[in-house]
Amino acid sequence: MDEVRDGIRAAQDSAQAAVAALDGARSEIERARGPLMVALKGAMNPRATSVEVDLGQAVEGFDELMQILRDGAGKFDEYLGTVT
């Protein structure tokens, strides 16, 4: 059983590192969005304006991903609680 617990804990550490990396990526994009909006203001080019949409969806994606990873870790905590 210790082996299972250690393995799950190691997996959770990796998931936590993933959350930290995603959080960093999200901050980068959030920081860039302000200047982007100013720089693109009034841009008529569809490629330019699709950038805003893509980045908006990416930020939503980061939020969702971090939550999913945390939910997954929560399930493993519950699992360990039932078997140890």
């Binding site: 617990r5 250690d6 393995g7 799950i8 190691a10 959770q12 990396a21 995603l22 980061f62």
Partner: peptide, 20 residues
């Protein structure tokens, strides 16, 4: 950073699958 996160998630999955 997102690509790093992807690697970490893959790693986490592999470890969890092994443990389980």
């Amino acid at each position: 950073l997102t690509a790093n996160a992807a690697d970490e998630v893959t790693d986490a999955l592999a470890k969890a699958e092994d443990a389980l």
